[in-house]
């Protein structure tokens, strides 16, 4: 079983690389073979990835996310699943290269960093922590989808403002659809983020090893607030796409910052695993 998981771990980045390449060809050249091959490989990759995550959970005897590399892998899978749903709903495969490149990046980090074996500390076997980490991974995936489509919205916005009517604007969904895709993903991500923050706080209050003074928790509150303002402006102030998307992208930048910078600068947080 372990060797099968190792093979899948090594294979997944290549599958995501292949997907990103095929969807890149689709956007640039719109070739018929890419139109057929892309969605098929996408479904196959998602199923394999799902199998990998479940298999690893069973094999290692813990819930799917007990390590930041597992978080990356889970987020890559959730991102792929979200994109699969988007492609099925919108019948437009031309945006695939963007979320799938992000999934490639996440999975490459996950595959490279996957430890040979490690012990999961008892404190992380708490079910509350499991729900917290799964919610956090789903939030990251959904907010990443929101950021990808938000970024595409801003690029399209600029191109159309400039009167650039090349094949890129021709193949992308309309501005309104891009804004809606971004907003829906952010709504879902915000719900999971709220859940992750709430469950995390409850868990931290019950666990003496961690404290509410952790900078990551405060950084996450700031991210949550920025997304909250964007969604509030959208629903209460009837703000248009450009404002909401810009705020969402600011929130995502802070989210990445909190994941990468805070974790690097302050070493007090989320050292969940028994790894050094």
């Amino acid at each position: 079983m372990d060797s099968l998981l190792s093979v899948l771990n090594a294979l997944l980045p290549f599958l995501y690389g292949g997907l990103a390449a095929i969807y890149g060809v689709l956007l640039a050249r719109d070739l018929p073979w890419a139109r057929k091959a892309g969605p098929r490989l996408l479904v196959a990759t998602f199923i394999l990835h799902l199998g990998y995550v479940i298999g690893e959970g069973f094999w290692l005897g813990h819930h799917p996310i007990a390590d930041k590399f597992e978080l990356f892998s889970f987020a890559a899978m959730a991102l792929t699943g979200s994109y699969l749903w988007v492609e099925w709903r919108r019948r437009n495969p031309y945006t695939g290269v963007f979320p799938l490149s992000l999934a490639l990046l996440l999975q490459a980090c996950a595959s490279l960093g996957r430890p040979e074996a490690y012990e999961v500390p008892e404190v992380l076997r708490n079910p509350l922590f499991a729900w917290h980490s799964i919610s956090a991974a789903l939030a990251v995936a959904a907010l990443s989808v929101g950021a990808v489509y938000g970024g595409l919205f801003l690029v399209m916005y600029r191109l159309l403002k400039r009167g650039d009517f090349g094949s890129f604007t021709d193949r992308m969904p309309s501005l309104e659809v891009l804004a809606a895709m971004s907003l829906h993903a952010v709504e879902v991500g915000f719900v999971f983020l709220t859940l992750a923050v709430g469950l995390g706080d409850v868990w931290v209050s019950r666990t003496p090893e961690f404290s509410m003074a952790d900078p990551k928790i405060w950084a996450t509150f700031v991210v949550w607030a920025v997304y909250g303002v964007a969604l509030g402006g959208r629903f209460l102030g009837k703000w248009g796409g450009w404002r909401v998307v810009s705020l969402n992208l600011a929130g995502y930048t802070l989210l990445l910052g909190s994941m990468l910078l805070v974790g690097r600068v302050f070493d007090t947080f989320h050292r969940f695993t028994g790894r050094p």
Binding site: M156, F165, T169, D170, S174, L175, E176
Partner: peptide
């Protein structure tokens, strides 16, 4: 066609 690049429906 240009209007449709802004709104699809």
């Amino acid at each position: 066609a240009l209007a449709k690049r802004h709104f699809s429906d």
